[in-house]
Design a protein around this nucleic acid. Sequence first.
DNA 1: ATATTTAGTCCACAACGTAGACTAATTCGG
DNA 2: CCGAATTAGTCTACGTTGTGGACTAAATAT
Lengths: 400, 400
Amino acid sequence: MAQAVRHDAMRARNLSLVLREVRTHGSLTRASLAEVTGLTKTTVSKLVADLLDAGLVVETGAVRGGERGRPGVEVRVSGDRVAALGLELNVDYLAVRVVDLARRVRLRLTQTVDNRLSEPLDVIGDLRRLALSALAQAEGTGLRVVGAGLAVPGPVDAESGEIHNAPNLGWRNVPVGAALDLGVPIRVENEANLAALGELWFGVGRADFLYVSGEIGIGAGLVVNGALFRGARGFAGELGHVVVTPEGPQCRCGARGCLEQYAGQDAFFDAVGDRSPYAPGIDAIVARLEQGDAATLAACDKAGWALGVALSSAINLVDPHTIVLGGIYAPLFPWIGGVVAETMGARLAQLRAQAPPVEVSQLGSEAAALGAAGQVLETVVADPAALSERLTDRRDPAPR
Amino acid sequence: MAQAVRHDAMRARNLSLVLREVRTHGSLTRASLAEVTGLTKTTVSKLVADLLDAGLVVETGAVRGGERGRPGVEVRVSGDRVAALGLELNVDYLAVRVVDLARRVRLRLTQTVDNRLSEPLDVIGDLRRLALSALAQAEGTGLRVVGAGLAVPGPVDAESGEIHNAPNLGWRNVPVGAALDLGVPIRVENEANLAALGELWFGVGRADFLYVSGEIGIGAGLVVNGALFRGARGFAGELGHVVVTPEGPQCRCGARGCLEQYAGQDAFFDAVGDRSPYAPGIDAIVARLEQGDAATLAACDKAGWALGVALSSAINLVDPHTIVLGGIYAPLFPWIGGVVAETMGARLAQLRAQAPPVEVSQLGSEAAALGAAGQVLETVVADPAALSERLTDRRDPAPR
DNA sequence: ATATTTAGTCCACAACGTAGACTAATTCGG
DNA sequence: CCGAATTAGTCTACGTTGTGGACTAAATAT
C-alpha cells in the first residue's frame, strides 16, 4: 500500500538513489552524481557525507584525470563494513556464503551431504553450525552481517519462513527460518527464485529473464525489470509442472505429462539408464556425451525438446527477454541448448520477431546462495537510512 | 528508474495518496483521512483544499452522524470535472465510452461492423468520428476529457502506439494512435490487457487475477497486486498459443496444438458445425446449449478441457489468485466453467492446497473500453498535481 | 604566471509537513 | 435548557530537507 511521504522518507529515498547510482556506475564523483540523480551538488554532498559516515561508501583516492578543471573525488561502495549471509539447504549439499556490500564473495563454506537421510532438525543444526562459523569469521574481519537469506528446494511461505512442502527433501511444514536462529534477520525463499536473483546480480542476468533451475524438480525464477515475480501466493515459477503432453506419463504431482517427467533429473537419468542421480552422476553423463554415446545424446534431445515446449508456453505467457539455463542444464548445455532453442524457435518465431535467446548460467550451484545474500544487500541499498540508525546505535553516535 | 524526490514530488505523492484513499473509501472526512494516511490533520486539510480547487473532489453535505463531537465534512471523488475516453477497435465492432473520475459511465456509443472488410484507415476514420462525437458531448456537459485509451485485438508497441500485427484484423504495423488524432493524449494497448483492467476497476476483479479473453484469438491479462503485468517486451498473456498438445493440429502461428486450435472462437464454431462466428453466432450456440444439443455440449467439453490444460500451465507459472473468464466464455460459462475447473483441479490440487477459483466476467464486451478509460483515470489519480497544472495552465497541452 | 574550467562547500531561502494551541460544532448529562 | 465533553478543522510557529547561486579549491590551457 502506498505510504505518506514525509521529510525523512524523502531523505531515505534520495540516500538510496545515490547509493544505487554509485553501485551501478562503480564509482562516481559528487558532481557526476548530481548530474545522474538530478539533485543539486549541495544535496548530493550532504547525502554522500551521510553515506561515508555510515561506512557504506568510501572515497577512492582516484580522480577523474586528463580534463580541465578541478578533479573530482570518486566514491565507491564500501565492501569493508556491511555484509550478508547467503545460505542454501538443498537435497545433496549445504552452502554458506558471506558477501559484502560491494558484492564480493568473502567466504565460501560448502558441505556435501544427502539430506534426505536425516531428520529436518538435524539438517538445520548442521547448517546452523556452518552459518555461525561463517558469521564469526566475518565479524572477526570487521564486517557487520546485517541479515541472512536462505534458499530451500520448494515453495515457501515468505511471511513465516516456513517450508510448506519440499517433496524432494520429503519435508512438510518445517519452520526453517525460526529453527536456524542465527541472531540476524533471516529470509527464506524458494531456491529457483534466489538462483535467478543470483544470476541477476552475480552472473549473466540482464534486467529481464527467466532462469530455469534444473534439479530433481524443475523450477523457474522470473526476473522482470530487476525484480522477482512471485505471483499472488508466492508459488509462481513451477515450470516443472507445465504441461508438455496432457495425457503423458503420470507425475508425482498428480497430473500427467508434466515437464518434470521428461526433463527432470530423475527422468533424465532414468532415460540414460543411470540410477545414481547425484554429483558423480552428472559428471558421468557429461563424460558419456563427450564420447558421443547415442543413448545419452537421445535422452538430451528428448529432454531438450520437452524443455523447449514448456518454455514456449512460458514465453507466450510471461514474455521474458532471455532464457537462462541453470542447474544440471548448465553442464548439459552444449548438448541441450541447441534443441531447446530450435524447439522454441519453431513454435515462436512467427508470432514474435524472434524467440528469446537461450543462455547458460555461469554460477553453477552457487547461484542460489549468492542470490540469498544479494537479496539482503538489496534491502540495505533500498533503505540505507534504516541501517545507518542500526549502525549508529551500536557504535559511537555519529553527528546528525 | 528511480527518481530523486524533491519537495514537489513529495507533495504530488501525498496528493495522490489522499485522492486514492478518498476513492477506495467512497467518502471520508479530513480527520479520517489523517488517520488512514498517517499525515497530520493540517497537511490533509491543505491537500484536500488543493484537490477541491482542482475539482477532483467535492464536499458532500453529508456528515458522519450519531457520534459525539463536531461532525466531519466528507469529501468524495468528483465525477463532474474530469473524464476519460475509452475506445475499442475490434474485429466486429467499435466501442466508445466516456467515464468520469468517479468511474461512472457517462456515455456509450457502439457500432457493429465487420472491420476485416475495410481498409485500416477507413476503420480508424469511423472510430475517430465516434470518438469526436463523444468528446463533444462530454465537453458539452462540462467534463474535461484528459485522455483516451484504445483497445485493439493484438500486440501493441506501447511507446509508439503502433499495432504490430493483429492477425484477426489482418493489420500489420498500423500507427493507430497517431492516426486517430483526437487532440488528447492517447494510449494504445492490447484488448485482453485492458479488459483485465476493466474487470479490475469496473467488474468482479480482485487485486490478483488472470483474465481470459476468448475472442477469435485467446488472450489473457494478468493483474498482479492491482497492476498489469506486461512482460519484457509487452507481449505477455498470449494464452492462445500455450501448448495443449505439442503435436496437435497446425495453428496459424506456425506451431502445433496451441490452445486456440481447441478453444478459440473459430475452432469452437467449427466443432459445432456453425460457420457464422459473430454476434448472432454465439447466441445461437447458447440457444442450442439450452436445448441440450449433444454435439454442442461435446464441443464445450473439449474447449473447456483444453482451456483447463492451458490454464494449469499458466497457474503453475504465474500463480494468479483467481481466473476470470470473459469474451465468449462468459455466455458459455454455465456449460464450460465446470469442465475448466475440474481439469484444473485434477492437475493442480495436489501441489497446491487448491486450484484458483474460476469466475465469470460481468462486463461482457464492454470490459476493454472501460479498462482503457480507467487506465487514463488511473494516471490522474497517480499524479493529480500534473492535472491541476494542466487545468490552471489552460492553454498548454503539456506532455507527461 | 594567468585565465579558464570544473569540483565541492557555504549560506540564505523556499517548500512542505509537524505539533499543538485554538476555534467550531455537535452530543451527553443533569 | 445549559454547560461539559468530544471531535473536526484551522492557524501559527517551527523543523527538516532540497535549492540556487556565490564562493573557494584545484586542476589544465595558453
